[in-house]
Amino acid sequence: MIAMQYSIALPRDYDMAIIRRRIAVRGHLMDGFPGLIFKAYASADVAGEPPGAEGNVYAPLYLWDSVEGMNAFLCGPGFAGLAHDFGRPAVRTWSVWRAWVSPQVTQACYATREHIPIAPGAALDALREAAQAVAEARMAEPGALAALVGFDPTAWTQVRFQLWGAAHPPVPGPGVAAYTIGHVSTAAA
């Protein structure tokens, strides 16, 4: 599995209703996309949710079952349209160590992303086991609809994503970005 995210930073005075409309009109286009486990249409709005957002951003989160689906999307018309409208963003990817996705993931309203540096010399096998245990603990948290942990060996960082239902609005903190989810697409949709 591969986790993927790109972030489009928008001006502080940007009308985020434009992004919400974009999601409402185009979100369903990824429903049923081959190789997609989920795409969470994530955004943060300085004037709205989640509380404490540092800036306006459109930052979808993806979980792919293989590189073929990811490549089909990145080389296809959907990503080309995004690049036309906003410029081609840098796309971050992570190798997934553990992922859990609830059958109700399409009901997600919020997401968090946490980056954790991997210390030089850290035993990656032990780190992977510990990260998998964290993901399993987060799966059991009330309101959790998806949890995954992975790593980026180019920057030697760990990433943790979690998707939540309506009753669990996240609060960003040091190293934690929080988002509102406007739509969730899955291959099964």
Rank of each mutant, 00 (worst) to 15 (best):
P77N: 07
G87V: 01
A72L: 07
W100L: 07
A126Q: 11
V25P: 09
N71Q: 10
V57D: 05
A178L: 01
A83M: 05
P172T: 04
H115G: 08
A72S: 13
S102C: 00
G165K: 01
H84P: 10
P142Y: 05
V149I: 01
G32T: 13
W97Y: 08
S66M: 03
E68I: 13
F73A: 06
A17L: 14
W94G: 00
Y41K: 00
G150H: 08
I116T: 14
A59G: 02
H84S: 14
V159L: 04
Q107W: 08
G143T: 04
I8D: 10
G143E: 14
V171I: 12
T93F: 05
K39I: 06
E136F: 12
Y110N: 01
P60Q: 04
A119D: 06
A47K: 13
S7C: 11
T157M: 14
Q107I: 05
Q132A: 11
A111F: 10
A111S: 13
D45R: 00
W97F: 03
G121V: 04
E141G: 09
G121Q: 06
V105I: 03
I23D: 00
A130W: 10
R128D: 12
C75L: 15
H84W: 07
G69D: 03
Q162V: 02
A189G: 15
S185K: 07
P170S: 04
Q104P: 02
A144G: 15
L10W: 04
G32D: 09
Q5P: 06
I37L: 11
P174A: 14
P103Q: 11
P50G: 00
P169R: 08
Q158F: 15
E129N: 14
P142I: 08
L74E: 02
W156R: 07
A147E: 03
C75K: 11
V25W: 08
Y14V: 06
A140P: 02
L148C: 11
G69E: 03
L74F: 02
G121I: 01
G165Q: 08
P120I: 03
M16K: 03
T106E: 14
Y62G: 01
Y179I: 01
G55I: 04
L10F: 02
Y110E: 08
W164A: 09
A40F: 05
